[in-house]
Simulated assay, not measured.
Amino acid sequence: MLAEIWVEDAVQKLRPDFAVLAMTAEGLANDASDDVSADWLHKAGLRAAEAAQARSAQGSADDPHVLAWREAYRGFGAKPQRTRPSVDALLRRVDQLPAINRVVDAYNAVSVEYALPIGGEDLDTYQGTARLVRARGDEGFETTAGGAPAIEHPDAGEVVWRDDQGVTCRRWNWRQCVRTRITETTENALFLLERLEPYPLERLHAAADDLAARLRTIAPEVRIRTRLIGDGTW
């Protein structure tokens, strides 16, 4: 899977500074949220709040990486105030981060602590290769509406992650499809850690190391592999 993941030329041209660190974790033993994963979320929220206070004292309200993602959304026609980048949405909830399950809690905590969009996917539900493309507009996106299964379609030109079956995440990292989300029964997962300038590649790797350590706390025998795709100089 890792060797086959690719980013379309049209996305590279849109944001030459984009890079994604892809991570596979095989042999997970996920479960419901517990005291450990709840503590990860709590501490990440506290650190993010402290970082926000420090920026405010220096006259800056938002994290530079969040600002870069808002700009990227505008670049393909999305309105980041209406459909926010995932890390932007999480950072707005640092005082009440939702507990989902142990693995999701782990990557959400890292996302908040490192101000970094991270997507988590169940590898066993994937059909073919993960790739980041600009949508045609007729691809299917499995979601729910009013509690019932529904199929939506991305806007033409929207940046999406997809596989052979359809869109797995809309608007780059805004919303994940139902089919590939990580549940308590997930055994094999794919994580996508996404950065734009001015986010340092060293910090991207540090976030990946932190996530790997948390996954090993959940499942000590988990097998983890990583691959950096792009280095901000396409």
Rank of each mutant, 00 (worst) to 15 (best):
R92H: 11
R136G: 10
V36Q: 12
H42M: 11
R214C: 00
I100K: 08
R47C: 02
S60A: 14
R15I: 01
A99S: 14
R227Q: 13
G27H: 10
A57L: 15
T143W: 10
L91C: 14
R84T: 13
D155F: 01
W234M: 02
D95S: 13
V159C: 02
A68V: 08
G45T: 10
L215I: 02
D31Q: 13
D63M: 11
D124R: 15
G166L: 09
S111D: 04
L91H: 11
A89W: 14
G120M: 10
R74H: 09
T233W: 03
I100S: 06
N188H: 15
L91E: 12
T233R: 14
T186G: 08
V167G: 06
P85L: 07
Q165F: 12
P200G: 08
A52E: 14
R227M: 10
S37T: 15
R170D: 02
W161Y: 08
S86A: 11
R55L: 14
I100M: 09
R84D: 02
G147H: 13
D122H: 06
E142G: 11
E139H: 11
V103T: 09
A51P: 03
L196P: 01
G119H: 03
M1I: 07
F76G: 01
E50R: 15
E8F: 00
S33P: 14
A135V: 09
A51N: 07
A99G: 03
G230R: 05
L193I: 12
I118R: 01
D88T: 09
G146I: 12
A208V: 06
R175I: 11
T186F: 01
T233E: 10
R15L: 05
A44N: 06
T168F: 09
R214H: 06
R214Q: 09
L123Y: 02
K43H: 14
R131N: 08
A32K: 08
E221D: 15
W174A: 15
L204P: 01
W234P: 14
V87K: 04
P85T: 01
D124Y: 05
E142A: 15
D164T: 06
F141G: 03
A212M: 11
M23Q: 07
L132T: 05
R15G: 00
E121Y: 15
L201H: 08
L21G: 00
A213M: 09
L211Y: 04
G166P: 05
E187P: 00
D39M: 07
G59W: 05
A212W: 02
V20P: 00
A57Y: 02
